[in-house]
């Protein structure tokens, strides 16, 4: 277990290094920081001096080292537009995105598990076929179509739900602006999280169905049947736990997809989260903010995947407990 944790940490560090390097390079290619700091009235010599002072003429590797050093101290640069630490800007938007992703994830689990299991258990049933058809179609429907469709009916035609923004928020634990604890916030959350869940659910339905079908053909399920155990016990106790193991792993990998989709969802619903912020930063060529976003997202990705691995290890006795060796 210890070597497993160490290996995982090493991987995490490597991934983060790669991401930080990539975002550093992007930052270097996007616009000229000196131009952002001083107007066009400053002479070429003065600019050169400023460049020297800022270290912009140092070799790339030296600059990257400095960038990394600052990053480790929690300094990811200052946003051109907000004139504030990029990390602060992002941290202010983080709760909105996390809450959106969390709600979407809950919806995905609640929808995909029963549907996937049902389709696996009753392969011939017309409902199973419809579920499969829906998940195939769902895979190919872009999220903005789903979002615009939902927005049109629920917000514009029927005026049931708000179409943009986050609504009221409440301060939780002193530092977290949450929309989960009041009605207005929840109403605002509904359309974006349903859209987000809608595009993620098909992947998981298909995954759960496929895994479950595999598991149901395994020797231990056949032996369980031969014990005379009831069908619900076989499906929901014997089979489901084994089905969920690979699903957890893939779930971790899908974090990346989820992050990508939050960018789109937030832009469509003008959800004041990190994704929306990122789109803005791109439009404004706010290089430090862009690279800070990439690093934070990389961090989130690495942390979730590590957490997922730990959960997997806790659920799977074969990882948790060393096995028999002949």
């Amino acid at each position: 277990m210890l070597s497993f944790v160490l290996r995982r940490l090493l991987q995490a560090v490597l991934v983060l290094l790669t991401i930080s390097f990539a975002s550093f390079m992007i930052q270097g290619k996007l616009g000229d920081p000196v131009r952002q700091m001083v107007g066009t009235s400053v002479s070429v010599e003065q600019r050169e001096a400023l460049r020297d002072e800022l270290g912009l003429n140092d070799p790339t590797l030296v600059q990257y080292g400095r960038f990394l050093g600052q990053a480790l101290q929690g300094d990811l640069g200052t946003s051109y537009y907000y004139k504030e630490s990029t990390l602060t800007v992002i941290a202010n938007r983080l709760p909105a995105t996390l809450e959106l992703s969390f709600c979407a994830l809950v919806l995905v689990i609640v929808m995909a598990t029963p549907l996937g299991v049902f389709a696996a258990i009753n392969p011939k049933n017309w409902l199973s076929r419809s579920i499969l058809l829906f998940s195939t179609l769902g895979l190919s429907i872009p999220i903005f179509i789903v979002a615009v469709f939902l927005m049109y009916f629920f917000a514009i035609e029927w005026r049931l739900l708000p179409s943009f923004g986050r609504g009221d928020t409440t301060q939780v634990l002193g530092l977290w602006q949450s929309g989960l604890f009041n009605k207005d916030g929840l109403m605002h959350l509904l359309l974006p999280s349903v859209s987000l869940a809608f595009v993620m659910t098909p992947i998981f339905i298909r995954l759960i169905r496929a895994e479950m079908i595999d598991v149901l053909q395994s020797d231990y399920i056949r032996f369980a049947w031969s014990k005379g155990i009831s069908a619900p016990r076989i499906y929901f106790i014997h089979a489901l736990k084994n089905t969920m193991l690979p699903v957890i792993t893939v779930g971790g990998i899908q974090t990346g997809t989820l992050i990508a989709y939050t960018i789109l969802t937030e832009s469509i619903f003008q959800w004041p989260g990190m994704g929306f912020l990122f789109m803005d930063a791109v439009t404004r060529v706010d290089a430090p903010l862009i690279s800070a976003y990439l690093i934070v997202v990389g961090l989130i990705f690495v942390v979730t995947n590590t957490l997922v691995d730990v959960v997997y290890g806790l659920v799977n006795p074969r990882v948790r407990i060393p096995g028999y060796s002949a």
Binding site: D219, Y220, R222, S226, K241
Partner: peptide
């Protein structure tokens, strides 16, 4: 099944549920 008639299978390593 499982009480009056019981069965054991060929591959014991895969016939027990790994999660329990």
């Amino acid at each position: 099944t499982g009480s009056d008639i019981a069965m054991i299978f060929q591959d014991p390593m895969t016939s027990l549920n790994p999660c329990f």
